[in-house]
């Protein structure tokens, strides 16, 4: 195996893994607070169309990225309202959000089909970008890749080493106890759902202005669902999310590299989905073995009157 091949494989892996990493980090926060949001696919595609249309109109991809994150966040508040305030069925609400996102983005995106936009350029990091082999592998990417990497330790630190993180986790494990200790359960959950929405929107933006700079209806292609599987696979830990996301990025790299060998494209396209089922299986087994369950209150609405 040549060095160039290894470099290109790692680069493909990181690029394909980045949107999954962003989405998974967000969903980890959402679920840690006790809310299951199955609307990732919908929030992601809303992010993708927002970033693309804003970039097409303003020629400023960064404005597109920022607005996409905002739209993802606002979109997630629909789910927050139905599941936290109304205490409705979170599974159905998440599914509804996905349908809504796919529909709205299809409508909004219609004028942008086939358009090309200015994309975000790759930036070589100073010094470390010059290291042979490792430099091009890891440190010559677009800034969004670095942001997603930096988010991993940052979000891990907040979740496990700060008061805010303790609050988030206690709200997800035992909201009644957290409430009696003075934690605002509703606010904490709203914020965590919003964080999930922002990161899903960012993931969508990455897809439409960096990964495949184009608008294609339904271009998230199930990545939102892969994110939900990865959240379980990662056992709700940001560091394991990094591993999981790049593992999946690696599946894409395999796809690209097997294609020239004459393996059917459609068979190769099955790989990430088969891998998702396998990852979920592994994650579930490990969760059981290590007795690290899902947040105890995951998917359960909380109300003061009915404990």
């Amino acid at each position: 195996m040549s060095v160039e091949f290894a470099v290109s494989a790692v680069r493909t892996t990181i690029k394909a893994g980045t949107p999954l990493l962003m989405g998974t980090l967000g969903e980890i926060y959402t679920e840690r607070s006790g809310v299951l949001n199955l609307g990732v696919e919908g929030m992601m595609i809303m992010g993708a169309i927002t970033a693309f249309s804003v970039t097409a109109n303003t020629n400023d991809p960064w404005l597109g990225v920022v607005l996409a994150a905002m739209v993802g966040g606002v979109f997630s508040l629909i789910h927050a309202f139905t599941s936290i305030t109304l205490r409705a069925n979170q599974i159905v609400s998440g599914l509804a959000l996905t349908m809504l996102g796919l529909g709205l983005s299809g409508l909004l995106g219609k004028p942008y089909v086939g358009m090309t936009i200015k994309r975000i350029k790759e930036t070589q990091l100073p010094f470390i970008g010059d290291i042979p082999v490792l430099g091009p592998m890891l440190f010559r990417h677009d800034p969004l890749v670095y942001i997603s990497m930096a988010l991993v330790p940052f979000m891990w630190f907040i979740l496990f080493k700060t008061k805010a993180g303790i609050n988030i986790r206690s709200v997800g494990e035992n909201p009644a106890a957290a409430d009696s200790l003075g934690v605002n359960v509703f606010m904490t959950r709203y914020i965590c759902v919003f964080v999930g929405g922002v990161l899903s929107g960012l993931a969508g933006a990455y897809l439409s202005v960096v990964y495949t700079p184009a608008w294609i209806e339904g271009m998230t292609a199930g990545r939102g669902w892969i994110v939900i599987a990865l959240t379980i696979f990662s056992m709700w830990s940001p560091t394991r999310a990094l591993m999981g996301a790049y593992l999946f990025g690696g599946v894409s790299a395999i796809q690209f590299n097997l294609q020239p060998l004459g393996v059917s494209v459609n068979i190769l396209n099955m790989l990430p989905y088969i891998a998702t089922v396998v990852a979920l299986l592994v994650g579930t087994r490990e969760t059981v073995r290590k007795r690290i369950g899902a947040p105890s209150a995951l998917g359960l609405p909380y109300s003061r009157e009915e404990k």
């Binding site: 159905v92 509804a96 349908m99 796919l102």
Partner: peptide
């Protein structure tokens, strides 16, 4: 995909 918008909204209203 307009039908998806309708589908999503109807589900949200029902559970609400």
């Amino acid at each position: 995909s307009v039908i998806n918008i309708f589908n999503g909204l109807i589900l949200l209203f029902i559970i609400g």
